[in-house]
Design a protein around this nucleic acid. Structure first.
Lengths: 194, 194
DNA sequence: GCCAATCTGTTGGGTAAACAACATATCTCA
DNA sequence: TGAGATATGTTGTTTACCCAACAGATTGGC
């Protein structure tokens, strides 16, 4: 696709900065972490940090995106199809991601995290839906993507708030009829009634 | 002392090459490890390897020296005194080092390893003895150092061959009288009779 | 034997990272 | 309030590393 060999020095530096940040996150709160802390831990020059990231918020964003992506089941995405399994898999990834975040401490950045997750969902859903509906109007696909991203994310918020006694899988399956047939809810496949 | 800030890139690169080598050593025999293998594992360019090491034997040597040094009790060395405790501590380090080597596989390099250990011992003993006998003839110290290095190393070989049923500590304590009083064996301190 | 493949060790030109130095916030505590 | 300390970004120069390409040595199969 669109990857023109990246210099291994760049990869190493980025990884070591991100690893350092993740490491520090387990020891201090985000607000107490300075760029100096990170570069010291990562054994890179402070100027090098700014060659790779806008600032510490940019780093936070990129780290979170990456951690979220790691939670995704790449086998599912690789198939590039959009079906019930896809939805369940992605929803599970969101809940896992949020669980892993709550163990580290990023208090006060819920909004940032929410935006990052939705952005990622948007990219993923857009790719999957564009493949499924190659012939359709781009804007239709975009509007659908937006609705899905916000909707699924909202579902995860609702799950966390009121329904953690249900498994993420069981929970999201109740949304499958809407996702696949809209408000008619005429979906009959799978086991939406579990 | 004699340390003029080393560029952190150099430190990182060296460490990552050495780590890669140690990692590979647990999977393959030394003779099957190529420079390419190491640099690939270490994520550095092959040319960079040659900027830091003569060749793969040079690397082996430096890695082993370092691993051996790690085995040493730095508290003992820091005191910079030469006494019974020093001897026991160093002897124990040698036996530990050899034990850790036998679990990795460097078959066919016993001679190299022996030389490395003796070289390290020589440096250490020379430092300790020079401090103890600052006023003595340098050559006397050097000759003593040589005898000690070879002697202690020989003792470790003998221990491995015929006396592994004894603890290294018990074993080497029987040599303490000779080390501290020469062939008169008139040493009376410590518990040489355990 | 011989050829193809692989490994070793070296080179020159290009690029990422180190470093020091600077101006500009933000903090902190007397 | 204001002065000293610490953090943020930025810049120009130097240095370590990347890379491609090379010749020569070793290895392994037919």
């Amino acid at each position: 696709m669109t990857q023109e060999k990246i210099d291994p020095r760049v990869l190493r530096t980025r990884k070591s900065i991100m690893d350092a940040f993740i490491e520090l996150s387990t020891k201090k709160e985000f607000k107490d972490i300075t760029v100096k802390d990170i570069t010291t831990e990562a054994m890179v020059n402070r100027a090098t940090f700014y060659a790779h990231f806008e600032d510490i918020y940019d780093l936070l964003e990129k780290v979170l995106s990456e951690v979220f992506l790691i939670n995704l089941d790449h086998r599912i995405l690789a198939e590039n199809t959009f079906n019930e399994e896809t939805v369940v898999s992605i929803f599970t990834a969101i809940t896992n991601f949020q669980r892993s975040l709550s163990s580290r401490c990023h208090r006060g950045y819920e909004d940032t995290i929410a935006r990052i997750i939705r952005d990622q969902l948007d990219v993923i859903f857009n790719k999957l839906l564009a493949a499924k509906h190659a012939e359709k109007d781009d804007d239709i696909v975009k509007r659908t993507t937006t609705m899905l991203s916000w909707g699924i994310y909202g579902a995860s918020v609702e799950w966390r708030k009121n329904s953690m006694h249900l498994s993420p899988e069981v929970f999201i399956k109740k949304a499958i009829p809407f996702i696949f047939t809209g408000v008619e809810l005429s979906y009959v496949g799978g086991d939406g009634d579990v």
